[in-house]
Design a protein around this nucleic acid. Structure first.
Length: 360
DNA sequence: ATCCAGGACG
DNA sequence: CGTCCTGGAT
């Protein structure tokens, strides 16, 4: 039997029942694929449902308020994805008369759509004959052909893309692409691949040679730096101050408590006071530490130390942010924050309970 | 605690 | 080629 037949018949019986595999439209496929970039299926599912409820079509997405968009995306990570989606939605409305582009080359012109996403949309929604190569497919094919070159290298990826395009089913390109990824997700996993139940193990060079645990070859990552960040929860009566981060760059368009990196030889308290003045122009007293939160990004990790502060003087000027705002603790949930900041907020809201309870 | 998985873009 | 995030496995 051919790889194509083995793969497609397996897929028919074994594919997962996922929300974005029901009544498909180009718009919904697009939404799911953007969310699934660098993000696991289980994480995406609740976001997918909420997003489609809030923004059921291109018009609602194109016209959405950015803060509402960010709130829906809050916690999903890689926040430029949703900003790019809104731009792409506007482009489709303005340059394609609101009709979703059907060619891979057109899709590639849209913000946030790269080679993989263009190929998967074109092949599923419009049956274009193009292979969609994501991380799963890179791994599956590196084993299938026993490719013994580091998977991160562009030359290796190019080789694999060519193989993927040659393997691709003529009649069912979309299903074939999905089936390859499904095998990668369910069977041909990074660790402990279950070759005994793999539909294409008889075609697999790595399996034949007993190399399935050695492939794909990976280069080791460089060491990443660790920073300590001090942030202030600045109280003024019943309000605390939050800052809206710049639209571009790390955690763009998300809110946070003002703060920043600790410098050489500086105490965390001094750092907190300094950063608050630099970013807001406010003078504060730094009181007790509320919580320390560890968080790892791709190319560095942080420990975020949150301090309770008291407002002394000055009027807030957004010197390093788009905006500053005094809000009540109970209203913090209306704003989109990064994960590390959410943990501070949880702590604050827990701390509210005892004061409330003493009223009884 | 540490490592790993997962696409697009300037 | 460095920058973007979080969750899950080990």
């Amino acid at each position: 039997m051919s790889i194509e037949k083995d793969l497609l018949s397996w897929f028919l019986l074994n594919k997962r029942d996922l929300p974005w595999r029901k009544k498909r439209t180009p718009y919904k496929i697009w939404v799911s694929e953007i969310m699934l970039q660098q993000t696991q299926v289980a994480t995406v599912i609740p976001y997918y449902e909420r997003f489609l409820n809030a923004f059921p079509n291109l018009e609602s997405l194109a016209n959405a308020d950015i803060n509402k968009l960010m709130k829906i995306w809050e916690g999903l990570g890689y926040y430029t994805r949703v900003k790019n989606m809104q731009e792409a939605a506007k482009t489709i409305l303005q340059k394609h008369n609101g009709v979703f582009p059907s060619k891979k080359t057109e899709l590639l012109q849209l913000k946030g759509i790269g080679d993989y996403t263009a190929a998967i949309i074109a092949s599923i929604a419009f049956k274009e004959h193009c292979a969609a190569v994501d991380g799963n497919v890179l791994r599956v094919i590196s084993r299938l052909n026993a490719i013994n070159a580091p998977i991160q290298l562009n030359t290796t990826k190019q080789t694999i893309r060519i193989v993927a395009q040659e393997l691709l089913s003529l009649e069912h390109p979309g299903e074939f692409n999905e089936a390859m990824m499904e095998v990668g997700a369910l069977i041909c996993k990074p660790k402990n691949p279950t070759c005994d139940i793999c539909p294409i193990s008889l075609h697999c060079q790595a399996y034949k040679k007993g190399l399935e645990h050695k492939l794909p070859v990976k280069l080791k990552r460089a060491e990443i730096p660790h920073y300590h960040i001090a942030a202030g929860v600045i109280y003024k009566d019943d309000f605390v101050l939050i800052a809206l981060r710049p639209a571009n760059g790390l955690l763009g368009n998300l809110w946070e408590f003002p703060g920043g990196k600790q410098q050489q030889g500086e105490s965390l308290e001094d750092c907190c006071k300094r950063e608050i003045f630099e970013e807001t122009g406010l003078h504060v007293n730094v009181l007790e530490k509320l919580i320390s939160v560890k968080h790892a990004y791709t190319h560095f990790k942080i420990t975020l130390h949150a301090y309770r502060c008291n407002y002394i003087s000055g009027s807030p000027e957004p010197r390093a942010s788009q905006a500053l705002k005094w809000v009540r603790i109970e209203d913090l949930t209306s704003y989109a924050f990064p994960k590390a900041n959410k943990k501070i907020i949880e702590k604050l809201q827990l701390a509210q309970f005892p004061t409330t309870l003493t009223l009884f």
